[in-house]
């Protein structure tokens, strides 16, 4: 009985709150119309195309690209499984797709780690400059963004190719006698992606550091913490949200990266986006391409949820 009563009171309370809220809403009743342009864009420009991708993924491929309006689950089956070419009854896991998937996740993860390792000292350097200078350094960080991605990628190609800047320099200095093969390797892809996405890590980490109260560091030293302990137990926990934001910003475009693996990786090993392109182009299997694109989307979503959970968990701990 007591329990019911309790519920009743909270219920009443909530009811009153709701009433106040609705009253408030009614007075602004028509104002939501102002957000109509934004809503339209969200619904039609974001969800609309996605819906088309979803629909295409359950249709039948047409003979020469495009789709036939017949429902089929074949594309989704093909994402993960394949029938043996020579024995159609034998169904196995589609290792080529899974390994491309794994490569994409792994390279994107490595890029994120490299960006974090390089981004931290950079952000630290900037945040410890006098206030007037910081803007200049931040500006310098964003300069690469002013140039087209393809051009930046070609620039890297010029640096690391066999007759490129690094190899000719080393050969002229007689340090090496034949060029080091850097182009067309995973190393090249990682260099390219880390270079392109580094600012996306530096900026949020800097933003977190900017808010860092330096008195906490002094307090740490006063309590006989070593430099390493100050870094590990004060700085890292406080700039962690910056790292998490930066990691999301780097990981997502890395995993969907198309131009960099294509130009620097030499196409010997596909990443997911190259596999998707193959299906829409020469493979003439649009539904499979659509299903693979959605698979990529799901991976990104899972990664996002994972990151957000980690942040959420942290905040709970702090409050507790």
């Amino acid at each position: 009985m007591a329990v019911t009563q309790h519920i009743d009171t909270t219920g009443a309370q909530a009811g009153a709150d709701m009433a106040a809220l609705t009253a408030e809403r009614e007075s602004h009743g028509w104002k939501w119309l102002l957000s109509l342009p934004a809503l339209t864009i969200l619904v039609f420009a974001a969800s609309g195309p996605l819906l088309i991708v979803l629909i295409y993924s359950v249709l039948t491929p047409a003979e020469y690209g495009g789709v036939v309006w017949e429902l089929s689950g074949r594309a989704w089956f093909q994402v993960f499984f394949r029938r043996d070419i020579f024995d159609p009854d034998e169904v196995t896991l589609n290792w080529s797709h899974l390994s491309v998937l794994w490569r994409s996740v792994s390279l994107a993860f490595q890029t994120t780690v490299i960006c974090a390792i390089l981004g931290f000292p950079t952000a630290w350097f900037i945040s410890t400059r006098p206030p007037g200078q910081r803007e200049i350094w931040l500006l310098l960080i964003t300069i690469p963004f002013w140039t087209n991605l393809v051009i930046r990628t070609f620039a890297i190609q010029e640096v690391i190719r066999n007759q490129g800047v690094i190899n000719s320099l080393l050969m002229n200095l007689n340090i090496i006698h034949s060029p080091i093969q850097m182009m067309y390797t995973d190393f090249a892809i990682l260099v390219g992606m880390a270079y392109v996405f580094l600012p996306l890590m530096v900026l949020p980490v800097f933003a977190a550091m900017d808010k860092l109260d330096t008195r906490l560091l002094e307090a740490g030293y006063d309590l006989y913490a070593s430099r390493w302990e100050v870094l590990r137990r004060i700085v890292f926990p406080l700039v962690r949200p910056g790292f998490i934001a930066g990691s999301i910003l780097v990981f997502i475009p890395s995993i969907g990266s198309y131009v960099t693996p294509r130009l620097l990786g030499g196409g010997r090993n596909m990443m997911l986006s190259n596999l998707i392109e193959l299906q829409f182009g020469q493979g003439r299997n649009w539904p499979l391409g659509a299903a693979l694109a959605l698979t990529l989307l799901v991976i990104v979503l899972v990664a996002l949820v994972f990151y957000l959970r980690t942040i959420g968990g942290d905040e709970d701990k702090q409050h507790g």
């Binding site: 080529s96 010997r268 090993n269 596909m270 193959l278």
Partner: peptide, 19 residues
């Protein structure tokens, strides 16, 4: 332009090659 059945096999071999 090969028929779809053949093209599908080719794409499969091609994906295996570039996996």
């Amino acid at each position: 332009t090969c028929p779809s059945e053949v093209n599908d096999i080719y794409t499969q071999i091609w994906s295996e090659l570039l996996q």
